[in-house]
Design a protein around this nucleic acid. Structure first.
Length: 822
RNA sequence: GCCGAAGUGGCGGAACUGGCAGACGCGCACGACUCAAAAUCGUGUGGGCUUUGCUCAUGUGGGUUCGAUUCCCACCUUCGGCACCA
């Protein structure tokens, strides 16, 4: 009975059986502890790549492990189906985005099934389905009702290649995150979500996310960018006008020698109107406006400015300082106005040098004396205040407090906290997305579509051939409608929502994917949420993970769910690379999962991808490494088959030393594999433990002729069960072959006996002055005194100690003895 | 520039809380089987040396310690994030 490991047949057999019997289906079982294991759902771009395989395999092992450990496990999957690639495919290949998307979904679903991932397929979500995106629109209307969705004209990021606006989070280094084109600035009226209302909470709650990697939390914290400072009111000389600045350094107020406004600042025109400076200012504004974000930041940050002819009055000393426009002052941050302190801010320093503006030192660092004449850069640190009237002599920190108090008393300023986070721009001038459910009525203005009329469906008969015009805007039958309020003719909104809105609440929908009366059922969400383990790529550290947290908080405030944070634990998996570079078609280093599955089987693919590196790190693909895993599975297959006859026989021979060693190995392996999976997600070491176990079994097979069937049975059962989350198909087959009727998926994860998990004997390390000089095998329950005696009586050790005075003997119980000589 | 992560054999990677550096796997070498090859199995495998042993070795240089891949300080390199945020 030398059956060969026919993975293709085995995998097909079990995938069919799992599918047919719905073995991964779950429902809420009140009173049973739950685990919600979730991998970031894929964008259906065509076929799965190795990054997907890694993501879903990691999630599957965690899900299977938790299920076997007694939890009620929710493990769903879906597709983030709206998005630009579908539309680009439509343009380049002439296929409708819907058709393209659904074809890809079918392909990817088949691939996921061919990997044997334990999904509850009845919960599958496709975000472009009307019964899903309807609720996305519904949520939008709730945001609108709450004032969290609004429309505003502002300078926005425009990708000329994608022909749409982008959120700040989607601009990487001035380039489009998707197509790498230069991003331009355009003045457009766009829809925003007011994520800034939640800036404080989004930042503060990061602290509670103990199960998140520190670096992700730091990235989010940096993105939110909290800073503490003060708002200070300056007045404009000769005009009854107040301009407020935001500063993080009130202690430098006396050092302000000029005043800066963003070129787009709304007050600029008023200031220069009818003055000789008006023309120059106008030209400067135009010049800056023409420049894209990338140009504004790429020219080695050359400071540029323009004098307005007007002066501001400093509230702390009534000094008159000139008001300039400067290219480096941003309208979107703070108040768009800045007090310039060239002595203590590097940018202001450079600006002052270029335009010959005065520099005044007001902070002296301890031990050094700053001199304006010789200094080559601003001193930006803290110190002692000088030239600051009654505040002179104070330290920066106390001066800051005192100045804020002083300003508050005079009614000229107050303490203030600022965030870098901007509101989330969600409108996209694209077809393949979720339509924004509002109409524009000449009489009523912006009118939401009534809930009973949702969803606003995407019309399917659209023309993608006209480059430069996005399809919906020209479609009369879609655009022309009636105002729901006054029934007069109105125009429909043609923008669609950023696809990140679809992925910001899908994890809630999985808890009741077929709910018809709400985005999700409150009770099932209460049972399953929050997600206990979320797994996905680090590239979503800011965008998706921040948006999803924001949505959860809003939905919670709307009373739809109870939780404030969606994901308790986050695992960010590393990239799959080959030859030192990310797999990509252009580099030609792509390894196709289909090829690996057909050549070695899904179990080998899964095993290798987990074995080659710990999940958080980059994974270097190695064809030879895959072969190694394939060999291992073959060894297991052969070994179990060789052992089968002994399992049936009830020869109850007495346990001898070999049997005992094997029993120790069984329990040691269970212990280590359990800890590796549970505590650290170190699947690579978990697998290496199983390999060691198999090596030990193989040795046992050779050494022990009269096999102890009881111990052997325990060993084989353990092996199959603990290997099953990694290589489920082969383990199911072996499990059945050794006589089990039920799926190994329903088996309990084995527990270990601590006494057996401990070795009987240990290797006692004996050091002399920290160098290993002998190793002695001793009983594990040896006392400290015995350890010392054994060590000192060793012949090898005597050689080193002879003639020297033993100064100290350090004994680490169960480990080593270190003899320190004089 | 600021923030963060990481540097260990020929390669991927192990080493719990400071206690045998290199588990497990790949590769390589030799051997067995074979007419032969593949597959499989076995043995060996960080460097150096005067090889029952000694010695050097975890990016570099210091430090703490009986003992450091692990802790501290400085530096180098690589990767990632942010980048005129007042």
């Amino acid at each position: 009975m030398k059956a060969t490991y026919n993975f293709a047949e085995i995998e097909k057999k079990w995938q069919k059986r799992w599918d047919g019997s719905n073995i991964y289906k779950v429902f809420e079982e009140i009173g049973k502890p739950k685990k919600y294991i979730l991998e970031m759902f894929p964008y259906p771009s065509g076929e799965l790549h190795m990054g997907h395989v890694r993501n879903y395999t990691i999630g599957d092992v965690i899900a299977r492990f938790n299920k076997m450990s007694g939890y009620n496990v929710l493990h769903p999957i879906g597709y983030d189906a709206f998005g630009l690639p579908a539309e680009n495919a439509a343009i380049s290949q002439g296929v409708h985005p819907k058709k393209w998307t659904y074809q890809n979904i079918d392909t990817m679903r088949n691939q996921l099934k061919s990997l044997g991932i334990s999904y509850d397929w009845e919960r599958e979500i496709i975000t472009c389905e009307p019964d899903y995106h309807k609720w996305g629109q519904w949520i939008f209307l709730k945001f609108l009702e709450k004032g969290l969705a609004y429309k505003k004209k502002s300078s926005v990021n425009w990708c000329p290649s994608c022909e749409t606006v982008l959120a700040n989070e989607q601009v990487k280094n001035g380039f489009c995150w998707r197509c790498d084109s230069f991003v331009e600035k355009r003045e457009l009226e766009q829809w925003f979500f007011k994520i800034t209302d939640y800036a404080k909470e989004l930042l503060n709650d990061l602290e509670e996310l103990e199960g998140w990697p520190e670096r992700v939390k730091i990235m989010q914290a940096n993105w939110i960018g909290r800073s503490e400072g003060a708002l200070v009111d300056f007045t404009v000389k000769g005009l009854n006008e107040k301009i407020t600045v935001y500063t993080t350094r009130p202690d430098t107020l006396f050092g302000a020698t000029f005043f800066l406004l963003a070129p787009e600042h709304p007050l600029v025109n008023e200031l220069v109107k009818g003055t000789p400076f008006a023309r120059e200012v106008e030209e400067f504004k135009k010049k800056i406006a023409r420049k894209s974000e990338i140009e504004r930041t790429s020219e080695e940050m050359e400071k540029e400015g323009c004098f307005t002819g007007v002066y501001a009055i400093n509230p702390v000393n009534n000094e008159e300082i000139p008001i300039w426009l400067a290219n480096y002052v941003l309208m979107e941050y703070g108040t768009g106005a800045v007090m310039a302190v060239p002595a203590h801010d590097q940018r202001d320093f450079e600006f002052a040098q270029k335009y010959n503006l005065p520099i005044k030192v007001v902070i002296q660092p301890e031990g050094i004396s700053l001199d304006v004449a010789t200094t080559k850069e601003a001193y930006i640190g803290e110190g002692v205040m000088v030239n600051s009237e009654k505040f002179t002599g104070m330290k920066s920190s106390e001066g800051t407090k005192a100045l804020i108090k002083d300003l508050e008393e005079k009614g000229k300023g107050k303490a203030s906290v600022n965030y870098r986070l901007r509101d989330w721009l969600i409108s996209r001038q694209r077809y393949w997305g979720n339509p924004i459910p509002v109409v524009y009525c000449d009489r009523c203005g912006i009118v939401p579509i009534p809930e009973s009329d949702l969803p606003v469906l995407l019309p399917e008969n659209v023309d993608f051939t006209k480059k430069g015009i996005f399809p919906l805007i020209t479609l009369e039958e879609f655009v022309n409608t009636k105002c729901p309020e006054c029934l007069s003719p109105a125009r429909r909104e043609t923008d669609t929502m950023d696809t990140f809105t679809c992925s910001s609440w899908y994890f809630l929908r999985y808890t009741s994917p077929h709910e018809e009366n709400a985005p999700f059922n409150k009770e099932t969400a209460r049972y399953w949420m929050p997600v206990d383990q979320y797994i996905g790529g680090i590239e979503h550290a800011v965008m998706h993970l921040l948006y999803a947290r924001f949505f959860t908080k809003v939905l919670s405030d709307l009373g739809l769910c109870q939780i404030r944070e969606p994901f308790i634990n986050l695992l960010t998996q590393g990239m799959v690379i080959k030859d030192g570079a990310k797999m990509s078609k252009s580099k030609g280093n792509v390894v196709d999962p289909n090829y690996i599955i057909s050549k070695y089987g899904a179990d080998t693919a899964r095993l290798f991808i987990l074995f080659a590196a710990p999940p958080e790190k980059e994974l270097e693909w190695s064809d030879q490494g895959v072969e190694g895993c394939y060999r291992f599975l073959n060894r297991v297959w052969k070994l179990v088959h060789e052992m089968m006859p002994f399992l049936k026989d009830e020869i109850d021979v007495e346990m001898d030393k070999t049997d005992e060693n094997l029993k120790h190995m069984i329990h040691r392996t269970i212990k280590r594999v359990t800890e590796d999976i549970e505590e650290r997600f170190n699947f690579n070491t978990a697998i290496s433990r199983i390999m060691e176990f198999v090596n030990a079994l193989q040795k046992y097979n050779e050494e022990r002729e009269n096999k102890n069937s009881r111990v052997l049975k325990e060993a084989i059962n353990t092996l199959i069960v603990i290997l099953s989350p990694f290589a489920p198909h082969m383990c199911e087959e072996l499990w059945e072959k050794i006589g089990n009727k039920e799926s190994v998926y329903f088996e309990s994860w084995p527990s270990f006996d601590e006494r057996w998990a401990q070795a009987e004997e240990i290797n006692l390390i004996v050091q002399v002055n920290g160098k290993v000089r002998d190793k002695i095998v001793v009983s594990a329950d040896i006392t400290k005194e015995e350890m010392e005696n054994q060590a000192l009586s060793s012949e090898k050790i005597k050689k080193y100690v002879e003639g020297k005075q033993v100064k100290n003997v350090i004994v680490v119980p169960g480990r080593l003895v270190n003899i320190v000589t004089a």
